[in-house]
């Protein structure tokens, strides 16, 4: 075959446009998009948030779709074709330096987002996301509105709770948490503890609070908690400026323990599930069981000087533990709750 200009140009066009027909025109003619089960139209504010999302290149780190085999943040529903109905442009993204955002709405309340946008390390100490404080208050609110719309109806349910009785959801719990906070520390801690599922309130920390465990706990605290609760656990942090109710001051727990006794299970439950309605997120997707128990022991020992690790009730001890370990953190310098033994008894069948 001899390449002549005519062959080159006409042939080149023919082959190219045939291929374009397959890759572009066929999908354009056959792909029908109708709103999916969770789709919702954007409000003007959310739409303005989307413009900011596009203009500032959020899409270079965040994807906008959940895959069949995804686990972790956002993996509650696999994306379907009508999810991006009428969104222009729907940038699906090619990287996940940060988490997928397609179902972000209702994961956190607004105040968490605002603290996070101002400086992501406020709420996520190890984040690589840039600070967006320079965008200004209004724009951060628009971005927050967009975030809360991600996930359409699912996001709306997470925010508003079940339509029928108005229970659950960020907004419902925010009202409760705010009222409790405003009623003072006693009522607030009472409320926080009451809302931990009952079996957890009776459960001491089943992990020994030895030096290695406390060291690990400290590491997790620095990676996940320090931004809001601070290095001395008093909640006086830059994040606190944007968060209401503010992060808990752990030292307030002293003398206000559940029935004067346990904290292990209560901490575990709160770290695992977060406190919906407040900026306290759930960590069950970031931290596995042992890590949550370790950080619970760390917070208890570091900020209260007390932990219930190794207290009754317990069953058969775990093989790797040192049976001679005794919990040295049973005496708190502050108020001694009634019934607390001065030192852990040796384990024996009870």
């Amino acid at each position: 075959m001899k390449m002549t200009p005519a062959l080159l140009i006409l042939g080149g066009l023919l082959v190219f446009w045939t291929s374009v027909f397959i890759a572009i025109f066929l999908p354009a003619m056959t792909m029908r998009e109708t709103p999916s089960d969770i789709w919702q139209p954007w409000t003007a504010e959310q739409s303005a948030g989307h413009d900011l999302y596009v203009a500032n290149g959020c899409s270079y780190c965040h994807s906008q779709f959940v895959r069949v085999f995804d686990s972790g943040h956002g993996a509650n529903r696999v994306s379907q074709i009508g999810d991006w109905y009428d969104q222009t442009p729907a940038i699906l993204g090619t990287e996940r330096t940060g988490p997928d955002l397609s179902l972000e709405g209702g994961e956190h309340p607004d105040d968490w987002h605002i603290a996070h946008f101002v400086n992501p390390r406020n709420t996520r100490p190890q984040s690589l996301m840039p600070s967006w404080e320079f965008l200004g208050h209004d724009n951060i609110h628009k971005l927050t509105a967009l975030m809360q719309s991600q996930g359409g109806l699912l996001a709306k349910r997470r925010m508003d709770g079940e339509q029928t009785d108005g229970s659950g959801g960020q907004n419902y719990w925010k009202a409760q948490a705010t009222a409790a906070f405003e009623a003072g520390p006693d009522a607030n801690i009472q409320w926080l503890h009451e809302n931990v599922a009952a079996p957890w309130r009776a459960m001491p920390n089943p992990y020994q609070a030895d030096q290695a465990a406390l060291g690990r706990g400290q590491l997790y605290y620095q990676q996940f908690c320090i931004g809001c609760h601070g290095s001395v656990g008093d909640g006086q942090t830059p994040a606190a400026k944007y968060i209401y109710p503010p992060p808990l001051n752990f030292t307030e727990l002293d003398g206000r323990l559940w029935q004067g006794k346990y904290i292990g299970g209560i901490f575990y439950y709160q770290v695992m599930n977060g406190i919906t309605g407040t900026a306290m997120p759930y960590f069950k997707r970031e931290l596995e069981s042992e890590k949550i128990w370790d950080v619970s022991n760390y917070v208890a020992v570091r900020f209260l000087g007390y932990t219930d690790a190794g207290l009754y009730p317990y069953g058969i001890g775990v093989s790797y533990e040192d049976p001679s370990w005794r919990n040295p953190y049973l005496v708190s310098p502050a108020t001694q709750p009634a019934g607390r033994p001065a030192a852990a008894p040796a384990r024996s069948p009870q």
Partner: peptide, 13 residues
């Protein structure tokens, strides 16, 4: 926008 609405845009992009 230089874009189409919806998922089809990704096919073009």
């Amino acid at each position: 926008s230089g874009a189409l609405p919806g998922l089809l845009d990704s096919v073009f992009l």
